[in-house]
């Protein structure tokens, strides 16, 4: 047993490490409290379904609002639950590349992350724009 003594607490220590990191990410990077291994489930209204993305695609003289493409849905969910600026930008750039492959005139993709907050007591929905990023053609390089 003595040889294994240092390993006795590996699993609980790992739990503490991951859960502490989750609190840091939830506080500083807006990670959904429900996710990330911090055991914040069933603690707050702020779950993934209370955040959504709105996408705009610009072409010369035209701005279109589009839905999240089917092949981007999984990625969009990951971005919604941990919406750091770099993750949002990477998503916007990939979406721009996809749109430009379909429609060569597309110049820009704008991405907004909206959050549904609730008025205390009444639960009335209060939508607020949490983040906004855009990707332009020159961001793609090449």
């Amino acid at each position: 047993m003595r040889r294994w003594r240092p390993l006795r607490l590996v699993a609980p220590a790992l739990l503490v490490l991951v859960a502490s990191l989750q609190i840091v990410l939830a506080t500083l990077a807006d990670l959904s409290p429900w996710l990330g291994g911090g055991f914040g489930m069933f603690a707050t209204i702020d779950s993934r379904s209370e955040r959504h993305l709105v996408l705009y695609v610009d072409s010369p003289g035209l701005t279109r609002q589009i839905r999240v493409p089917e092949d981007f849905e999984d990625w969009a969910t990951r971005v919604r639950v941990l919406p750091t600026r770099s993750r949002l930008r990477a998503f916007a750039k990939a979406l721009l590349a996809r749109e430009r492959a379909r429609i060569p005139g597309v110049t820009r993709v704008r991405l907004e992350l909206w959050r549904n907050r609730r008025a205390p007591g009444t639960l009335a929905p209060i939508e607020s724009l949490a983040r906004e990023v855009h990707a332009e053609a020159h961001d793609l390089g090449g």
Binding site: A19, I23, A26, P33, G38, G40, A43, I45, R118, P120
Partner: peptide, 25 residues
């Protein structure tokens, strides 16, 4: 530890658990 972190989230970190808004919602 699971219960300690779960309680920390509900009672300290969450903005809407203690008010009852979370459960109503």
């Amino acid at each position: 530890l699971v219960f300690a972190f779960a309680a920390l989230w509900k009672l300290v970190l969450s903005p809407d658990f203690w008010s009852g808004d979370f459960m109503r919602f």
